[in-house]
Design a protein around this nucleic acid. Structure first.
Lengths: 194, 194, 194, 194
DNA sequence: CATGAATGAGGATTCATTCAT
DNA sequence: TATGAATGAATCCTCATTCAT
């Protein structure tokens, strides 16, 4: 039992170190030896938990993506109205991107880079299903514009990534007012104008 | 004269090779030797044109960014109405992202990655000034929401990057209808609702 | 008793795994971990039976060499005539090389490689004494050429190793006729021509 | 011109270092770094001349095999009588094995080990053709036993490898008398007894 | 200007061996 | 006795950069 926990802890430490170092230096500029050092294990130990470097980032990506969507849908349930549901999810996502900044940065880098296996990428996408279902309902109810989900995502969710990065770079601070404005922009870009 | 042209050609070939290879493999997974080979020069020759690898990507980034903004503002002039001006710029940018896909991909990777020097990044941003000026005017005229430029950019321009990448990945094809929808979403997310 | 047997079984399994893996990959390309896996024990367990990797192959060599000579001299007894005795031994050796192919291959590799300690090699040679004694008698009786034992071995016994290897490689199949021819060649190269 | 020569010299130095080190330690116990050091080049330089370690030994094997056969057939011509021809070739081979001991040892190790690619092995064999032709003629003329070439080789040529190795190990010194005895044994094992 | 050969430094990965249980 | 997790020390190989020509 204690042994299993220790194993899990080590794996987690490795994943965490990977995120931090890849965020700061990029995938290929992050040596396994540094990851090991930051996680307080020997380089060889990494290979007990991961097949190789690629597998390490793939798994890290999937882990973070899962955490992201778990966070996003935490208080959501399918009986909510479309508008309430979207607001809830949007704000949780915003919360994640701004509070779990390291994780969000990592995802952004993975998503704009040939760093992750296509397979792992596919796996990471699946988790968004509840949002897509909500949109489908919204379209049927005439509340959400009848557009491709890609467009809906691009205009309502993806801008948060951009904001998170500029905030991380220090050029810009996203406060409560901004956030409300942002939500309004998101919502107005996908809702049907009456 | 012919000699100078030859030099310029070589520099351009190097920049182009850099873009293509970095797009496909990432910065650190593109060896100088491959760049040289693709540009039909010796590895040593690169160092006649660029100080080192970092300098090569920095300059490439600035080059592409300049090309991007030149493209964006081509037919724009400051006497246009805010709405017309924005539509023009937006559509040029969309055009660039979809037609000059390689260039746009490269920028996306640079912007979401610790790949470029902060200094070069700053330099790349400057070129967007005309758009910021247009927005300033729009805010004064009560046409554009009085939000931070970062928010305006996040909601009206940045989504195009996401769409470009998903299109490149093949999951989704952006046709004329989509494009018009996208423009409407962009505009409706930054214009003042009457 | 059962415990002791289990120990012996494990040791044997390890020796057997060593032979097979070294045959296919060579000494240095066979990791201890693979040997352990093939023998169904933990890597650490190997070190209960052998001091280290070198000791493992040394002992394996000695084991196999002992088995080889035990096999060779099984039905031999010193009262036989020189010719009968030689024929018997030669055919038993041929049998071993062709039927106990794995074992014979292993010996061939050990004998042509800096893989085994000199000491273990010496130990392995001792067991051939009965053949040397037979040759000594044969020389005294004027039946065997008065040559160095090394030459006698080189021409009458060693060719079998070559044939075994070529057969293992599949280039050539050694059938009964061949075997008889081979024996005649062996005998004619060491017997005194009348 | 001088440049080309320098390249050739480097390649030769690498091949020579490979032979010596592999002879003493085996393939897998010979690090590239040691080979480089012995050849007075940087480890990276090896990769200008050879694709990887496997390629280095493969090419070394083919080189040495070619040298071996060139040596063997030097003064041979096809108009000689079968017996004279065989004696000539046999003695050249014996010479090679005893004088070019390093080379011969290397071949012996390659031939008894899963160290060389099958393809390279095949290539190495081709060069023996003149000897096989001679034997074919000998069989037609009723001088050589009508046996498989593998058997002829096993009994007339291969014993020299065994003698070379035992001599190298110091257990036994092959002088002129021995050599003549050895030749007689070789010849008597393949010639047709009258 | 241009080059290709050369290299030192560094990185991913493996493996014999140990140690806590 | 038996184990599996852990590791430090290699080892192969790559790559940005330099230098003689």
């Amino acid at each position: 039992m204690a042994k299993l926990q220790k194993s899990i802890d080590k794996r987690n430490a490795l994943v965490k170190a990977t995120i931090e170092l890849v965020n700061n230096n990029g995938f290929h500029a992050t040596p396994m030896s540094k990851i090991a050092k930051m996680a307080n294990v020997s380089p060889a130990t990494i290979y007990l938990y991961f097949e190789n470097k690629q597998d390490l980032v793939n798994q890290t990506y999937i882990d973070v993506k899962a955490e992201y969507t778990k966070y996003a849908f935490k208080d959501f349930d399918t009986t909510m109205s479309v508008e309430k549901g979207f607001e809830l999810i949007w704000k949780r996502i915003a919360d994640f991107k701004l509070k779990e900044c390291e994780n969000a940065m990592f995802l952004a880098q993975c998503d704009n880079t040939p760093m992750i296996d296509e397979l792992s990428r596919q796996q990471g996408i699946k988790h968004l299903q509840p949002l897509l279902d909500l949109w489908a309902r919204g379209k049927k109810e005439g509340i959400i514009k009848p557009m491709s989900d890609y467009l809906l995502y691009a205009y309502s969710i993806n801008p948060l990534s951009f904001l998170m990065i500029t905030q991380k770079r220090g050029s810009f601070q996203l406060d409560k007012t901004h956030l409300e404005e942002a939500y309004q922009s998101a919502w107005s870009s996908i809702k049907v104008c009456k």
